[in-house]
Amino acid sequence: HNGKLCKLKGIAPLQLGKCNITGWLLGNPECDSLLPARSWSYIVETPNSENGACYPGDLIDYEELREQLSSVSSLERFEIFPKESSWPNHTFNGVTVSCSHRGKSSFYRNLLWLTKKGDSYPKLTNSYVNNKGKEVLVLWGVHHPSSSDEQQSLYSNGNAYVSVASSNYNRRFTPEIAARPKVRDQHGRMNYYWTLLEPGDTIIFEATGNLIAPWYAFALSRGFESGIITSNASMHECNTKCQTPQGAINSNLPFQNIHPVTIGECPKYVRSTKLRMVTGLRNIPSIQYRGLFGAIAGFIEGGWTGMIDGWYGYHHQNEQGSGYAADQKSTQNAINGITNKVNSVIEKMNTQFTAVGKEFNNLEKRMENLNKKVDDGFLDIWTYNAELLVLLENERTLDFHDLNVKNLYEKVKSQLKNNAKEIGNGCFEFYHKCDNECMESVRNGTYDYPKYSEESKLNREKIDGVKLESMGVYQILAIYSTVASSLVLLVSLGAISFWMCSNGSLQCRICI
Rank of each mutant, 00 (worst) to 15 (best):
S231D: 01
T240A: 15
C242I: 05
N250A: 15
N250R: 11
N252H: 09
N252S: 11
P254G: 03
P254Q: 08
F255E: 10
P260Y: 11
V261C: 01
G264K: 12
Y269D: 02
S272C: 12
K274V: 02
L275C: 05
L281C: 04
L281Q: 06
L281K: 04
Y289A: 09
G291N: 10
G294F: 06
I296W: 03
A297E: 07
G298E: 10
G302M: 06
W304G: 08
G306M: 03
M307D: 03
D309A: 07
W311H: 03
Y314K: 04
G321I: 06
A325C: 13
A326M: 06
D327F: 05
Q328D: 00
Q332E: 14
N340Q: 12
V342N: 01
N343E: 04
E347P: 01
E347S: 14
K348A: 13
N350V: 08
A355T: 14
K358V: 11
E364S: 04
E364G: 07
K365D: 04
R366V: 05
E368S: 13
K372Y: 01
K373G: 03
L379H: 13
L379K: 10
V390T: 13
L392P: 08
L392G: 01
L392V: 02
N394M: 15
E395Q: 09
E395D: 10
D399A: 06
Y409I: 14
Y409C: 05
Q415L: 15
Q415S: 15
L416K: 04
N418G: 12
K421T: 04
G424S: 09
G426V: 02
C427S: 03
D435F: 00
N436K: 09
N436G: 05
M439R: 02
R443F: 02
G445M: 14
K451E: 02
S453E: 11
E455R: 03
I463L: 12
E469Y: 13
S470K: 12
G472A: 07
Q475W: 02
Q475I: 03
A478S: 14
S481G: 12
S481C: 09
T482F: 12
V483A: 12
V483N: 14
A484M: 08
A484P: 01
L487E: 02
L489N: 00
V491R: 01
S492W: 08
S497K: 00
S497A: 06
W499R: 04
M500E: 04
S502Q: 15
N503W: 10
L506V: 15
C508P: 00
R509H: 11
R509W: 02
C511H: 13
I512E: 04
